[in-house]
Amino acid sequence: MTRSFQYLRPDFPREACEMKAKHGGKAVFWAGGTDLMLQWRRGAVDIDYCIDLSGLDELRQIRSGEDATVIGALATIASLQAHESLGSDFPVLLDMAERFATPQIRNVATVGGNLCHGVPSADCAPPLISLDAEVRILSPEGERTLSLESFFVGPKQTALADDEMLAEISVRRLPPRSVCTFERMARSYVDIALASAACRLTIDEESRISEARIVMGAVAPVPLRSTGAEELLVGIPLVDITEGLLAEVGARAASDTRPISDVRTTAAYRKHLSGVLVKRAVAEAVRRLGE
């Protein structure tokens, strides 16, 4: 009578993948469940098997190495905030985490869950993509590595095959003279982002922009990188970045967006907002690099 599902609790990542392979499309990985529970209750997702990942302690860790920091897919948003060195290595992830949902949700929701949910508004995506994050994906047969940017293929669709699991997100240490910023706007203090933007800039020894990343959230079927806007910045000396150029970068990024109208706001507003947020994210990055 009552709608429910079968419950499985693997002890190792590989075992989790095998369970997923065995039970197919109506088996789901359950991490924090803060999105999945709502979807299931609403009937938006069918679940026959819930594969509870709580036992996979190794995927909960955040490891800071010399070359890279590896964030386990099951690390909670709160654990990003609590980590001893993540905040100093990647302050943008702290900025993002502080504005992620509510304190209670942050204690439960995981970075991997946020990414695998695959919604365009996922807050973790733009900053991590701008950091050139890579994802390590496990399957019963082995593993593969993918750029996070190519992980998203459509609304609520990721590159994961049915038997694959996102295990880790790896972020390489930034080159010297790099700054990453994140801007987000919502209807009120706690809300899904109407739009968001992350910007990473790296300058060379002559203070010229050598690398730029501009990534927007909630304005396209997937988190959206605007290489057109990035190109406008590369090669420009910091001192030559004018208000006019910033506006041009914002406009270029906005022109790449394909937002929708929904109960939260209109497509026109989202498009406009994405330009504003990109401009601000870039301006803030430029300001900090100039300090």
């Binding site: 469940g33 803060t34 529970m37 209670q104 949700i105």
Partner: peptide
């Protein structure tokens, strides 16, 4: 519905009891 699990606040309405 907030309760503390291992000292951390969580919204118990959307957390699986089994977890």
């Amino acid at each position: 519905c907030t309760v503390l699990v291992d000292g951390e606040a969580v919204t118990s309405c959307i957390m699986l009891a089994v977890q």
